[in-house]
Every structure is written in structure tokens, then in C-alpha cells.
Write a protein that binds this DNA or RNA. Sequence first.
DNA 1: GCGGATCAC
DNA 2: TATGGTGATCCGC
Length: 490
Amino acid sequence: MAAVTSAAAPTQGHGGVTNPPLGGAVAGSSTQGHGGVTNPPLGGAVAGSSAAGSSSGGPSSGGPSFSAQARALYVSSSAKAGMDGVDSEKIAEIVLQTAANSPFTAHQRKLDRAVDRRVAKLLAAKRKVSEPERAAARATVAARRADLEASRRLERVCVVVDFDQFYAAVAMRDRPELAERPLAVGGALVLTANYVARRWGVRSGQPGFVAKELCRQLTFVPAEYEKYAEVAATAMEVYREYDPAVSCGMGYDECSLDLTHYLRRRVRDATGGLTLSARRRTALCFSTSDECLVAPFDQAGIAPNFLLAKMGADVNKPDGQHTVSPTVEAVLAFLSATPTRKAPPPSAAHHEAAPRSCATARLYLGISRLHLGYISATPRGYISATSRLHLGYTSWPERGGDAGAMQKGISFSDTFGSSDEPAALRRQLWTMCEGLGASMLAAGLVGEKLTLRLKDSSFEVRSRAAPRGAAIGSAGELYARALPLLEREL
DNA sequence: GCGGATCAC
DNA sequence: TATGGTGATCCGC
């Protein structure tokens, strides 16, 4: 249940089957293989793929048949940016055949069942709530809601900008010859795919081998985070003109601006309200793309607060903006039209409002935790494939003026070749301790508490903590404290 | 306080 | 041939 995605496709503006968006360079010929780019599986005319044997039309024409429920669970909706017109049935078939029986998927099913059980428990508890208790709760909510409504502010203009297909856009900027070919950033996992690749059904979060099966011509390039950071910094520099306090989101591919003051100075629409006018929007777009030249940077949500702006940025993909007008009616209409799942979890605001969270956060100040990560097994049943070092730390006082902003942990993880040899695992552990030690040195951090996480071939994760001790940071110290944890698990 | 799960990118 | 890495939080015990 946790993984269900709606199959309903919000019908997009540009209707019908379209050609790949880029000019003549997309070779129309059906020549397969190296160098030639074939057409994506548009509207039933499936090109090239070896999995073409199983038709989407008939029931069980050779391929395994999957229940509607299985489809809902393991095949993502095709209603994704840039994917209108693709043969989603075909894509679903390939994805299912390629990945549905993997150990990873089996583990996902198991997690889903656990979620179902938790939900059932909550619903059972809910049924036991008495009518008077319900009435009391409703009254509390109504009062709280009235408070909130009274304090609602609509005069701000908040913008969340999404850097469209960001990693892929950076790769295409640096290697223009890739721009018209299907491209994926990542490897074992697709982090981002360009729009050409998306027309084959390639998308972020997909395992690399599935993507390759969907699109044989797919080019993979590894992620280059330092580069993304640079480009993002350049973009932020541009946006600073509009909001000196512009902040970036969690990754490198989005940022948040408060345009209230900027617009108050420069733009005021006929109604007296503050909106991002069509002309201003173009200017914003130009001024950013002039500087960065990697993507249309105007995928954005515009709203009276950042929560709504963040949700709005997701609406008109790709390359579009969505505005939530600054009226109570518009805000409520937008919310009721948007699935709850799309709302980001409360973070900063939640901490302000929740004393318990605040107290917990303070507890970590200057105390620090130290984790050491996981070692996992390959599908062959050996003991290892992935390992991860993770640790909390103490930081120098000058590092964060704001306690709330202080980093609480640092970790190192790695996927490595399989082995069930204790000696090999110890060597792996040592390598990881070196990696983590280097990160800690670079960050100027030491830690007090260490956790070892192990993941096995069925994707089960174990996490084991070492007793708290003196602050440590060097590879040798890390290893000394981590090794006993590993030995105990062998 | 610990360990598992989840989230966001 | 076979599903990432990092930092943080929440939940249940």
C-alpha cells in the first residue's frame, strides 16, 4: 500500500502522440544498436526491444501476466513529465518482467505488508474512540483551525524553483553530443534521465538494468556532485538579486526565494495584489538561463508560503509554473485538489511548534553520536556488497551559529564486491574507516557514538551501536570501535 | 536509548 | 549482470 501510485494520468496540454522533442537529429530509422537512436515506443509502435514478444493487448500472449494490484505496486505511473504518448503498457510489461521477481522487490513487498499492519492497527484504535472523545477532538481542531486562519498571511510571494532534469542538464551542457540522445545519470540506480530517455520509460529511481532494458541505446554518465554544487551556486548568485536570502533546498536542484520585497519594489498588478506577472516571469527565466545555460530554470511554484510553493512546483512539469493565488479560497481549492501525499512533511515549522522535538534536538548539542554503517551481501548469498559508515559527531562551536542548523551525523557507505570471508570483510571495514576518517577530518568533526549497519542479500538492514566512548575521528580509532560490532555479526 | 523504518534529494 | 549515498527524523519498544 505504501508504494501505490495512481494510474490516473492528468491529461496534459500537448495532446496525442508527439515526436521526440528534438530536431532532425533523432534518427527515424529503426536501426538498432550502436550509434543509431531508434524511436521510443510511441503509441503502440514498439521499436526494437527484445521484450517485444509480449503484447500489451491480449491476455497472456506469452509473457507472464501480472495482476492489476501488482501493476499498481511496482509500475510507476507514466503520467510523468515528457512521457505523454509513450506506450505505458509496453513499459510496464518490460519493467515487470525485468524486476518484479528480484530480491529487492520481495523486500519491498515485505515492508509494504508491515505498513499495512500498522495502518490496520491505527484504524482499529480509531474505531475504539468514543463519540464524546470524537466530539472533543473536533472542537479542539475547530478552535486550532480558527486560530490558524486568523493568523494566515497572504501578502508574501514565495517561489520554489525546480532545476529541471538537473543532473542530466549539467551533463548535456558539458557534453553537447549527448543532448539529443537518451541519457541517464547514475549507474546501479538512475538518478535523473533526460527527456529523450524518458520517452522510453526511463526515469529516476529505476534500477540501471531495467533502464537499459527499456532503452538499449541509453548512455549512462556517473554523477558529479561537485559540479552540481558549482552550478547551483551560480544559480543562487543570480537569484540573490531577487532575494538576498535565497536558500537552496535539500539537494542541489531546487531553491526557494521570497520575492515579496522585490515585487513590492518593482511589480504591482492591476488588482493591487502581488503576483509574478508574465513579463516578470520571462525576465526571471532569462536572467537565470543567461547565467547558467543548463536548463530552462523556470519550473516553479509561486504561492503565499513555501509549503504551497513547493507543492506548486510539482504541478506543471516540465518547464512550467504554477501559481497559487493569494486568497483563502484559492489556497483551499489548491489543497483539496492535491493529494495529501504531495505535501512535504513538517520540518522547521514542526520543530517550532513541537516542544518535544525541540528538547530532543537540544539533547544532541555537543554530545554527538557516532555511527558506522552497513555491510551487505550480494544476491549470491555471500555476506557483503554494500557497507556504510555513519557517525554522529561533535563540531567546533564556531561551525554553526545556529544550533538548529548543526549537523548531527556523518557517514560513509560503499558498495563492494561480495565475500563471505571474515578477513575480506575486515579489510572492507578498514577501507571504510579510512574513508570516513577522511570525511571527518575534512569536516573538522569527531564523534562519540558509532553505529554499524549491515545489509544482507535480501536487503534486510541491521544496525548495531557501540557503547559510547571518548570522541574519535581517525581511521584507526574508528576501526577499533567498529570491529567488535562486525565480529559479533559474523 | 536502541534499532527499524521512512523521507528527501 | 541485477536497486545509491547522505543526513535526518519518526515510531515502537
